[in-house]
Design a protein around this nucleic acid. Sequence first.
DNA 1: AAAACACGCAACCGCTATTTG
DNA 2: TCAAATAGCGGTTGCGTGTTT
Length: 283
Amino acid sequence: MGRPPCCDNNGGAGVKKGPWTPEEDIVLVSYIQQHGPGNWRSVPENTGLMRCSKSCRLRWTNYLRPGIKRGNFTPHEEGIIIHLQALLGNKWAAIASYLPQRTDNDIKNYWNTHLKKKVKRLQQQTDPADRSSFQHQTTTAANAAAETTSSNYYNPGNNIDPTMQAAMAYPNTTCNAAPATMAVSKLFQSWMAKVPSPAATDYKAMVAMHEFQDDRQTVAAVSAINGDKSSSSEMVVGRREAGTTTTFSLLENWLLDDMAPGQAAMDGIMEFSAGCYADPIMF
DNA sequence: AAAACACGCAACCGCTATTTG
DNA sequence: TCAAATAGCGGTTGCGTGTTT
């Protein structure tokens, strides 16, 4: 019954671990050049590499894959990572999908070694009164959301982006999920409110928009917006059939636009985002 | 000069969702 | 239909290197 066992289950006998050698890299790359990535189970079998399939896949996706940019994160990339981390939490694969040249592992490492501290520093530099006020308002809004009660939890007294505030108010990543989910939900709900009603075929996307209770759905929806063909392909198809792709152009511009001072798109989203948060009627 | 410490990153581990036979 | 394996993800670890004492 089931699949035949792979190299992983060979009792671990003869499976090499630790850093890859240049020779192993060459073997792996030349095999993938001939056969393409995927079907990782067959890679060790056909190449003679004494590595498990999992290790081969990881080495390819995180290091050998063409087009990977390593190190030297630009301020723009940093901004995107910080922003998306505040929105999505530690969903590195989802964040990496917006930075095609970066791997999720690279982004995760960069966050853990640089950006987390940076955000923390910014947090400490922020007026504690503002922070506790925002934290209180965020919690209140979270509770109120369950009753579809409006709440103005954006603190208009400072000029800090609300999603950055969320990151500051919840430095512990495990606590980021709630405000992050809310932030995305509110952002999309306001988007939906500002555009004509979608066609009936957009049903699945609409359902997803209103089901942001858990991060997985948030990521699925965001992936759909980005045209991700994986888990949310049905939603993408539904939305594209309905011809509503342009609905999210502002968000897409902000997330994907890599032009040097591409601040226009970024400013747009910031402005729009702040406006949404500040609008007590909308929320 | 050398030991101690801090940092960055590649790779591993454990888990879940999906796929396969 | 279901058990077992794969693929993929996020958290964590361990090692090499740089910096400080």
